[in-house]
Amino acid sequence: MLGETTTAFSDQEIQSYSTVSYLPENRERILINEPGHNWWPDIEERLKHLINLDNGWDGYNAEPVSFLNASFALRVLETICTINTPAPQIVPGTGGDLQIEWHTDTTEIELHVIAPYRVEAWICSPETGTDGKELILTNNFIEVVRALSKMMEHLIDEAAAA
């Protein structure tokens, strides 16, 4: 019933867990917001489409993108993108994997999500040289964050020069 609350655990039970803390009594709602990028709904739609691909979508025996990989990709994007990051492109691999890509005039970034916490990254920018830099990533995406930040700087410089 609206206006009433229920407690699944007694106060005594809660106090036995040191990591549990009380919320201020006057806080009525805690909202988890959608990330603020204007491209976020398009990315969610794209991932929904990719996890619903038919088996054999590639003309051979490819599987659709796995829900776990799509979910992990969203978490990665949520973590590494700032409000100004341009929209990534997402392409499916043939074994349930996927690739997140950015391509600008100066910078290319590709994140091949093979499985959650198993990502092959390639960054090619003025900082890396023409061959680019290949990385194996698990849960630390700091190099990608730096590359995205540099990519944005280059985009701003280009816009200023134009």
Binding site: L50, L53, W57, D58, G59, A62, Q89, V91, P92, E101, H103, E108
Partner: peptide
């Protein structure tokens, strides 16, 4: 597949 086409 056209699913693997990107804009560059």
């Amino acid at each position: 597949s056209s699913e693997q086409v990107v804009e560059k």
